[in-house]
Amino acid sequence: MKLNDTYQLEQIAGRQVLLPQGQAVIDGGMVYQLNDTAAWVLGALRDAPDEATLLRRAAEEFLPASPAEQATLETEIRAFCDTLRKLRLLED
């Protein structure tokens, strides 16, 4: 997995924001505001080679208390990654 490198995670006025860079700005790239979890996932995606690694690191970070919480965590992270793919922010 690889994050689209025309976007960059930045702090804007105290918020975590995904900003277009370079020609993507000129071409009307969107600005995305992220919550803390989304910002963590995007940070982790930079050096996670695959989804399994990302899910393992997420489990280490968020410490799900039960198998049900673990399943919810995995479902939500997969859904977030799918959203990123649809927005062409993440490539496999």
């Binding site: 960059q8 930045e10 702090q11 804007i12 006025a13 918020r15 924001v17 900003l19 277009p20 860079q21 370079g22 020609q23 700005v25 000129i26 600005v31 505001q33």
Partner: peptide, 27 residues
């Protein structure tokens, strides 16, 4: 909020395209 700031920044005739420029403008 952020929507206002992003709209305002993107409507500025400015260097948004060099690395980090849009973020600097918005801040």
């Amino acid at each position: 909020g952020l929507q206002k700031l992003a709209l305002l920044a993107q409507r500025m005739v400015a260097d948004h395209f060099t690395p980090g420029a849009l973020g600097r403008t918005m801040n």
